[in-house]
Design a protein around this nucleic acid. Structure first.
Length: 435
RNA sequence: UCCGGGCUGGGGUAAUGGUAUCCUUUGGGCUUGUGGUGCCCAAGACGCGGGUUCGAUUCCCGCGCCUGGACCCA
């Protein structure tokens, strides 16, 4: 017996079926918006991550030297890869570039709730548009994906913020302030107690009165965003506020405004975000962390050696998304489904195989005996795979040119002429042959 | 990397310083023709290593894994 590697998971058929359904739903929505699926490598140059996030990041990666002496890493996220891909073909790709991808990622971290060393994400990104419609479309895809999973406004909430508003406000304060540290402090506001939060802001260079003032500003309601402009008096804050308002207005046109709440205290930890950022939260707060997040990262492509290219995207991870769905009671049943089990009694394989083939041609899930089992054992098995209908192909029935249809839920049975089964029926059941 | 809780057949449990209970599960059978209720047979466990002891699943130590949290969340 070998053990599973820590932080990695096996998915058996029942659970996998539910996961597949959820991932397909999310991807289908993105594809309806014209996001095109891409395929990407599991390994990238370790340097790509070190350059973007610093050498320390390698500690949290599966990074190693391959047999050719290259320093490589299992991809911990998709953004650098898609940035690389966009840069490589920036001339020939028509803009905006809209890509979607679902696949595993790996990080060498301590597993905990909603976090594993191997995890699956769907990345949805738009490159080449700085228009607020692009930001809003990302929010719309995210909202549509969640609602098509059966989630409602009562289940989740997109907390929308803007990096430039935070940065711009901080910039307008007197003194030597570390913007990055201050933004990270804001990101922690809901998580730590107030004193600790104030201390973090203090460390970032804000005075006590500035901390109070800044904190007040973060609570500015949506209708009073102009007050922020007046406070800062800078063009940066003014255009950031305008941009945020334009994005929110666009989400209204796209029919997803109701899922978005202004929340200036939402910052996202990442340094590379530049404009609108948002995080999806479980409305009840039972999922203790953000379910997923996204935002605008206009400078990243240029940082990867490309021409300046605006970008916005989001990336739901299925570990937290499944927690949200389960909490809301919309996680798909983890139960196998089978349309037909074709049961053989005696030497009836040929007829049974014919019937099974015809049913499969109609698109159904059909199983038959491949283990030489007895009648009872076959019925047992049919029950265990939740077969809806069992087609009994037995020597006795065949003498009268019949097969028997058994509805597994009720146990009712009816004869059907073997010549007319499945015949013209697309999905024949007990009811179609019962008088 | 750090902190807390945990670890007995595949799953859930019981007891115990002298190798383990019950339920469930899995496979087979109860005239190769009736499952989801029965019966019979079979399979299957003390996470790993060390220590104490005549003897450790039990007590002690270390490690591993699971779980929750911190850090981090790119």
């Amino acid at each position: 017996m070998y053990d599973r590697i820590k932080g990695f998971r096996d998915f058996y058929p029942e659970e996998m079926q539910s996961r597949r359904q959820v991932m397909d739903t999310v991807e289908a929505i993105a594809k309806q918006y014209g996001f095109r699926e891409i395929g990407t490598p599991a390994l990238e140059s370790a340097e790509m991550y070190a350059d973007k996030s610093g050498e320390e990041i390698l500690e949290e990666l599966y990074a190693f030297e391959d047999k050719g002496g290259r320093s490589v890493a299992l991809t911990p996220e998709l953004t650098p890869t898609v940035a690389r891909m966009a840069v490589a073909k920036q001339q020939e790709l028509s803009k905006p570039i809209k890509w979607v991808s679902t696949r595993p990622f790996w990080r060498y971290e301590e597993p905990q709730q909603g976090r594993f060393r191997e995890f699956y994400q769907t990345n949805v990104d738009i490159f080449g548009s700085s228009d607020p419609s692009a930001d809003a479309e990302i929010l719309a895809v995210a909202a549509d994906a969640l609602t098509s999973l059966g989630l409602t406004q009562d289940d989740f909430d997109f907390r929308v913020s803007h990096r430039d508003i935070l940065g711009g406000l901080l910039e307008s304060f007197e003194g030597d302030i570390e913007t990055g540290a201050a933004i990270r402090a804001v990101d922690k506001r809901a998580k730590v107690d107030h004193d600790e939060y104030a201390e973090l802001l203090g460390d970032a260079g804000l005075s006590e009165s500035q901390i109070a003032e800044f904190d007040d500003l973060l609570d500015t309601p949506e209708d009073d965003l102009d007050e922020l402009v007046a406070f800062a008096g800078t063009e940066r804050v003014e255009s950031a506020v305008e941009n945020l308002q334009a994005v929110l207005a666009a989400t209204a046109d796209f029919g997803v405004r109701e899922y978005c709440t202004l929340s200036l205290t939402t910052a996202r930890g990442l340094d590379y975000y530049t404009g609108v950022v948002f995080e999806c939260f479980d409305s009840t707060g039972e999922v203790s962390r953000a379910v997923f997040g996204g935002g605008r990262y206009d400078d990243l492509i240029e940082g990867f050696g490309g021409q300046p290219t605006p970008a916005v995207g989001f990336a739901p991870g299925y570990a937290t998304l499944s927690l949200l769905c389960q909490r809301a009671g919309v996680w798909p049943e983890e139960e196998l489904t089978t349309d037909y089990y074709v049961l053989q009694v005696g030497d009836t394989r040929e007829v049974a195989a014919d019937i099974a083939r015809e049913l499969r041609e109609r698109g159904h899930i059909v199983e038959s005996d491949v283990a030489g089992r007895s009648f009872g054992a076959q019925l047992d098995y049919a029950d265990s795979i939740n077969a809806e209908t069992v087609v009994i192909v037995g020597e006795q029935d065949l003498e009268d040119d019949n097969v028997t249809l058994k509805d597994m839920e009720s146990g009712d049975q009816v004869h059907a002429a073997v010549d007319s089964f499945p015949g013209d029926h697309e999905r024949p059941t007990f009811d179609d042959f019962a008088k």
